[in-house]
């Protein structure tokens, strides 16, 4: 039970915090999208790593066998959906960003706020 035994969890945590930090700290909407992506990726790794069964094979089953020999396929399926959600979010976010750039000439949040919201 050393700290390193949970290296996957640490990876998840580092990725997640990095993603959130980017969302919080950056002024640029564009970078926020990147941060969000990172954040979502961490969740995907979190799910995938929990499906792992040590020493097991990929869950491609041809004849009836012991389920414990295979990794759990469900999280992978779930994450396929989550990836789609993530892609869609990114696409929508970028789409909106392009139009923000057309409308304001910038994607920096503080400049936009100064332009429009403080008046």
């Amino acid at each position: 039970m050393s700290i390193l035994a949970h290296y996957n969890d640490w990876a998840v945590i580092v990725l997640m915090m990095a993603g959130l930090y980017i969302v919080i700290s950056t002024r640029s909407f564009l970078k926020k999208v990147v941060g969000l992506n990172l954040f979502q990726t961490s969740v995907i790794i979190f799910y995938i790593s929990m499906a792992n069964v040590t020493g097991a094979a990929a869950p491609i089953v041809t004849e009836p066998v012991d389920a414990a020999d295979y990794a759990n396929p469900l999280p992978h399926v779930l994450m396929l959906t989550a990836i789609v959600v993530g892609v869609a979010t990114t696409a929508v976010g970028l789409g909106i960003l392009v139009r923000i750039h057309e409308a304001y000439g910038t994607v920096e949040e503080d400049e936009i706020v100064r332009h429009d919201f403080d008046s």
């Binding site: 696409a91 970028l94 789409g95 750039h101 057309e102 304001y104 910038t106 994607v107 400049e111």
Partner: peptide, 18 residues
């Protein structure tokens, strides 16, 4: 469609916000 949406935009005069 996503590719079209982004690729067919008119190039924005560079560095509007920069």
């Amino acid at each position: 469609a996503i590719f079209y949406a982004f690729a067919s935009r008119k190039p924005i005069a560079s560095g509007g916000g920069r």
